[in-house]
Every structure is written in C-alpha cells, then in structure tokens.
Design a protein around this nucleic acid. Structure first.
Length: 270
DNA sequence: CCGACAACCTGACGGC
DNA sequence: TGCCGTCAGGTTGTCG
C-alpha cells in the first residue's frame, strides 16, 4: 500500500487526531521492525505534545514540543489503525492522546520503521540527506530531471525508483507515470525522446495528485471507528492489469526487472 | 555505472 | 481440508 500518496493520505488522516494533542500513553509492543525503535522512544514521547504532522517522501513526520520528530515508515504492509477495538499481534506501537483517541501502528511484515530525530536537524537525518527532491515540490522541475537523467544508460524505471533522483515514487506510480508519458520502462534514462521527456514531470505529478485525491476518498473509510480499510478502488491504467486492454486496445504487458513486476503497454510506450 | 539477486517478514491466494 | 509455491506497495547491500 504505502507509496507517497498513501503516506500523504495517512498523514492527513492522523493530523486531526494527533495535532495539538498530548501523548498520554505510549506503548512499544514489538520494537524490532526493519530496525529497532530508539530504546528511549517511550520516555521521549510520553507526555509530549504533538505540534504538527508532515511527510518527506514515503516517511511520515510527527513533530513534538520536545524538539523531537517521530519519523515513521510504513514499509510494505504498514498502516495506522484508529481506535482499534482490540490490540493484536502486529500492532507494534500504540499511542493514546489526551482526548482519549488510540492509534496503533500495524505492520505484519515489519519492513517499516519508527525513529526519533531532532526536528531542527531533520534535513540531516541520514536517509533524508541522501534524498532527491519531492516530486510534488518546487524543485522537481523538467530542467532538474533532464539534468539528472542526462547521460544515464540505466533503465528509466530504475532511475525513477532511485530515491536520490526523486524521493517518494514506488513501483505502482512509476509504472503509471511512464505509461502516461509514453515512455518504455526499459528506455535508457538519457535517451528519451524530447517530447516524451517533456511529458514526464507533468505525468508524475498528475499520477500522484490523482492518487492522493483517491486516497482522500478512502480516508473516510480509513478513519471509521471500525478502523478497517476499504481498500483503494484501482483506477490504474497498467499496474496489475496484465492481459487487459490498454486505453489504446493493446494488451497490457508484464515483465520482471530486478525481481519486481513492471506493467506497460508496448504500443503506447517507446 | 549497471543489472541481478538476496535478505528482511508475514499473509493471501491459486493449484492440486 | 491442507500443503506448497508464488507473489506483494520498500530498502539496503553484495556481486560480477
């Protein structure tokens, strides 16, 4: 589930529940995610007031009045459950606010992570320091991307998944954006036809914005007291659609690159 | 620099 | 009903 739009949707869902609230109770139930929670996580968060929420790439940010930001990553299977009726095996971190709301970070595969870092130094958080621009931010321009791709012989799909070039894209949205721009996923980054390259930044933006919009409609389901997700209605043009027709009528194809599925239309994408 | 691959871990699903 | 293989939105490191 979690690429940039899903993290953005999550942060927007958490904001009204957490912002301005004091964390009354903090329980680290299963600290060993991709890397362990900071050992003092509980004491640093308990009693802290949440001053704001944000997002960097696929990471959610929870700022506190103690000068710490909680940085969470949802990995492959992570999500926050709101007011869960019961706490289960995969609820690894549980927060309770002064208003009596409970939030559980649920992540069966434990590829996600939770960390704390001084808010003022966030750009120096090692992962963030190595990251490229936000795809929806002002620095992600056609000029920037063209320069980053110039001379590169690697497949454009791999380059767009490289968080150092642009931070936040994952497998689904790279497939979708390349389809929208008409670029074959195997095309060398430095050899994309002018017209198609011109279309790439707008395509990436459009795909992400549409997905955030769709996430917005899912948000109401997400925030329901039952807490269970009504999963995203898939409106993807190629992802997960092997054998089904592209908008042009040709069948969507699937190939495997580096162990990951790539969906594309051989007729539309060059 | 590049691509392939493995590792981390659990759950869902299809085939038999 | 159950067992087994395959696959899944991410990240990081190694190898040739």
């Amino acid at each position: 589930m979690p690429e940039l739009p899903e993290v953005e949707t999550t942060v927007r869902g958490l904001r009204p529940v957490l912002e301005g609230q004091t964390l009354w109770h903090v329980e680290a139930r299963r600290p060993d995610l991709r890397f362990a929670f900071p050992p003092d996580l509980r004491q640093r968060l308990t009693g802290a007031r949440v001053t704001g929420l944000g997002r960097r790439a696929k990471y959610g940010l929870v700022d506190t009045d103690r000068g710490d930001t909680m940085i969470f990553h949802l990995g492959m299977s992570g999500r926050w459950r709101l007011d869960p009726e019961t706490i289960g095996t995969h609820d690894h971190l549980v927060l309770e606010t002064g208003a009596g709301r409970r939030l559980a970070l649920n992540d069966p595969r434990r590829f996600g992570s939770v960390d704390l870092f001084p808010t003022a130094d966030l750009p120096a958080y090692p992962v963030f320091a190595a990251m490229g621009p936000e795809p929806l931010g002002p620095d992600f321009t056609h000029g920037y991307l063209a320069a980053a791709l110039e001379g590169r012989s690697a497949a454009i799909k791999a380059l767009l998944l490289d968080q150092r070039i642009v931070a936040g894209l994952g497998n689904i949205y790279v497939c979708e954006a390349l389809h929208m721009a008409g670029i074959a996923p195997t095309r060398a980054g430095g050899r994309i036809a002018r017209k198609r390259l011109d279309a790439l930044v707008p395509a990436i933006r459009a795909v992400l914005e549409a997905a955030i919009e769709a996430g917005g409609s899912t948000l109401r389901d997400y925030a329901r007291p039952s807490g269970e997700l009504g999963y995203f209605a898939k409106q993807w043009r190629v992802y997960g659609r092997e054998g089904q027709p592209c908008l042009c009528g040709a069948p969507v194809r699937r190939r495997v690159d580096g162990g990951r599925s790539t969906f594309y239309c051989a007729a539309c994408q060059r």
